[in-house]
């Protein structure tokens, strides 16, 4: 495997798959940054478990992307040999972890959406995507339960934990809307029943998030969903740093294995 970056085809199905695979890989990487640093051993393992689930989802999606593209790219090629502008993940998942509360709030916002999304994808007309969804839907249900319970515990906990949960939500909220929108090149896939239209999940997602926020005693920001662009490869500064760490070994020692 050469160290030079790969070029991507513009096939809509390929890009649809890569967008979700990149979400899972990047959030999984962010959560893995907590390994050895979480506030308690039990949570250290919990976050690592979620990170591994996400990595597994990313891997399954990348493997299928390789089949769809037909250019001989495997999971490693997609993960290690693309530049930031060719990564198509949500801006939400690439944001730095911040403190524990912000990390948990992000898992909650993302999982509350993905739980609905994967449920819908189990009925995808694409058999391979439906099969990946059937496994992912069980994993994300637990991620949501775990994160939502923490949001309630933090929001309804001490003044400091409440303040941190509220601050994390305020910071991440502008990025959350990108999940709820589709890209123009996904319209045909949605019409064909291959992809799920995220717009139809907006109301149920908001309902779930509102319910947990109410129980946690935190308020949903009224700021608009102003930040997007990740789906088209427009990333923030943090993404370059993240990929520098994620890709370092393969870029420095091409085709290295152990």
């Amino acid at each position: 495997m050469p160290a030079t970056s790969i070029a991507l085809a513009t096939d809509p199905l390929l890009r649809f798959i890569l967008r979700r695979a990149d979400d899972a890989l990047v959030l999984g990487h962010r959560l893995s940054e907590w390994c050895g640093h979480a506030p308690m051993l039990e949570e250290d393992m919990a976050l690592a478990n979620i990170a591994l689930d996400l990595l597994g989802q990313a891997r399954a999606l990348y493997a299928y992307a390789g089949v769809v593209e037909g250019a001989g790219h495997d999971e490693d090629a997609y993960a290690y040999l693309r530049d930031p502008a060719d990564y198509l993940n949500l801006l939400l998942v690439e944001q730095p972890n911040g403190d524990f509360a912000r990390t948990i709030v992000r898992v909650w916002l993302y999982s509350a959406f993905m739980d609905l999304w994967w449920q819908r994808m189990t009925a995808s007309k694409d058999a391979q995507l439906a099969a990946i969804a059937a496994r992912a839907v069980k994993e994300v249900a637990y991620h949501l339960r775990h994160a939502a319970a923490w949001v309630v515990r933090l929001g309804d906990g001490t003044p400091e934990s409440h303040q941190r949960a509220q601050a994390g939500l305020a910071l991440l909220w502008p990025y959350a809307g990108e999940m709820l929108t589709s890209e123009p090149d996904e319209a045909a896939l949605i019409a064909a029943g291959v992809a799920c239209d995220p717009e139809t999940l907006r109301a149920p997602w908001l309902g779930r998030v509102k319910a947990v926020a109410a129980e946690a005693g935190i308020s949903l920001p009224t700021t608009p969903f102003s930040q997007q662009g990740g789906r088209r490869g427009h990333h923030g500064e943090a993404m370059g740093h993240l990929l520098a760490e994620l890709q370092y070994m393969q870029r420095t020692y091409p085709a290295a294995q152990w």
Binding site: E42, E43, M45, A46, N49, Y142, R145, A149, R153
Partner: peptide, 11 residues
């Protein structure tokens, strides 16, 4: 109890 059950599952 809930988080104990979660942690037991994860550990």
């Amino acid at each position: 109890a809930t988080s104990a059950l979660d942690a037991a599952r994860d550990l």
